[in-house]
Design a protein around this nucleic acid. Sequence first.
DNA 1: CAAAAACATCGAAATATTTAGATATTTAAA
DNA 2: TTTAAATATCTAAATATTTCGATGTTTTTG
Lengths: 95, 95
Amino acid sequence: MITELNIKQIEKISKALGDPYRLKIMKIVSNNATCTQCCDVSAEFNLAQSTMSHHIKQLIDADLLIADKEGRNLKFVVNKEVCTAYADYINSLVL
Amino acid sequence: MITELNIKQIEKISKALGDPYRLKIMKIVSNNATCTQCCDVSAEFNLAQSTMSHHIKQLIDADLLIADKEGRNLKFVVNKEVCTAYADYINSLVL
DNA sequence: CAAAAACATCGAAATATTTAGATATTTAAA
DNA sequence: TTTAAATATCTAAATATTTCGATGTTTTTG
């Protein structure tokens, strides 16, 4: 299934990636073979829990992360299709 | 020559792309076979000249556009290397 | 050389984002 | 079943971004 992103989604994804914490979260999740959890990620940062929650929410809302609530934990992985579709859009600017 | 972007550049590029006007500017420049100028772009928008100038500056500062001052005109094209390098970074999140 | 064209810069208002603390919710553990 | 752990939500302050109008600079044109 090939995902095509509209311009509003491109904007939202770009905005979500326009923050150092959120970029670092993406990298951590990407580097993790297994699903990551909020608390795993939080451990790497010096931010309030509510702030972390906010950042992760933005990545999920932008569909960059796919989340799955398991018990009291929130697990997530990189949304490969959306990342690829976003990269495709960027590449389409280069003709 | 292969461009490698550091994380600060990735952040700056993402931020630059996280705005509907700037995304539209990128598309206009991308679609133009020849160099684009500020006044070409401005004609498509309902924004003050100073605002357009500000948006274009952000794209140039993020190295997404390459600018060249010719007389009183500012001409620019898409920076293909940086766009490609950015897309590569995004793809690197998908393993 | 005076006027206009193209763009940049500055200052200020409006708006959006980031952040933390307090509190709420949901689930697991004791 | 009380307690603790993991996350979410709300509010408010701090900070950043967007936008415009006014003005400045540089270059071309009359």
